[in-house]
Amino acid sequence: MNMTIEQNSVLLEVNNLKMHFPVSESIFSKSKTVLKAVDGVSFTINRGETFGLVGESGSVKTTTGKCILGIHNPTDGNIIYNGIDITKLSKNEAKKFLREKQMIFQDPYGSLDPRRSAFTIVKDAIVADGHKIPKGELKDKVNSLLELVELDPVIGTRYPHEMSGGQRQRLGIARALACDPKLIVCDEPVSALDVSIQAQIINLFEELQEKMKLTYLFIAHDLAVVRHISDYVGVTYLGKLVEVTDSRELYKNPLHPYTKALLSAIPLTNYEVERKRNRIMLQGDIPSPINTPTGCPFHPRCIYARKECLTCMPPLREISKGHKVACHIVN
């Protein structure tokens, strides 16, 4: 394959990303504990595609997203955005790419300033880049953005607490779009919404992607939500990727026990199949990232765990073309 085309089609490449938070017990005591939030994550996202990041809550998905957006300064690793390693940039240089990467938040209400109206929220985002725009043009631009996310411009006078959950999330999307983004990190954008609204918002994401050539990092805690929208899916557990592949392959042929467990949590529509299915239930809770288990982080909850799983972290290996798994028991 031609290397240059490959290079060009990649928008974001994350290499061995690590984000460790110091958790100091006291100012004077010397023992510093680190919380290994993101611990060696690598993946790539092609232009105009969607990468789904899936894991239980607490599996450090949000933090990964925030590192890519430059909200956190990663401890180690590279984030190559559009061919440039943004972890090595100075603050001023990073500002150039700031508006190209936007985020949709898990809690739509918390992501909107309660003291600003819908119109002002979108307007703020437009004018934040410092360009002066005539008033009339600005108003048109805000209204067209509201229409783009299927909000009636009349809503502009309302405050976040006067809107429904779906409307708030649409407003959040409008604000992100106001910056002309290339990459949008969608951090569980539908998990706080009613099921009936979830489908609408996901459809909106798909339409917008087509219209505006957007690239998504789509975070979710269950595989059902990312199924439709993702081209590739990464399954994450305690700050490590345990399985990466394209989404058809993942649903057809899941290899990692954790992925299998997540998949079997999705109820099937066919009752007969559902009844006969052998479900794998996850036992217990996800451990705290402060004292991660030795070896494979999943071993305490894994029904297939072997001796080597307790001592040695399995590397992410390519099993078949484009299908990577980090597990000792998979051949």
Binding site: L69, Q102, A128
Partner: peptide, 19 residues
Amino acid sequence: DYITASLLTGESNLKILFK
């Protein structure tokens, strides 16, 4: 989150502080 969102849109510190 709305402060994070404002930072991502490139809003100035002055505006975040006072608005």
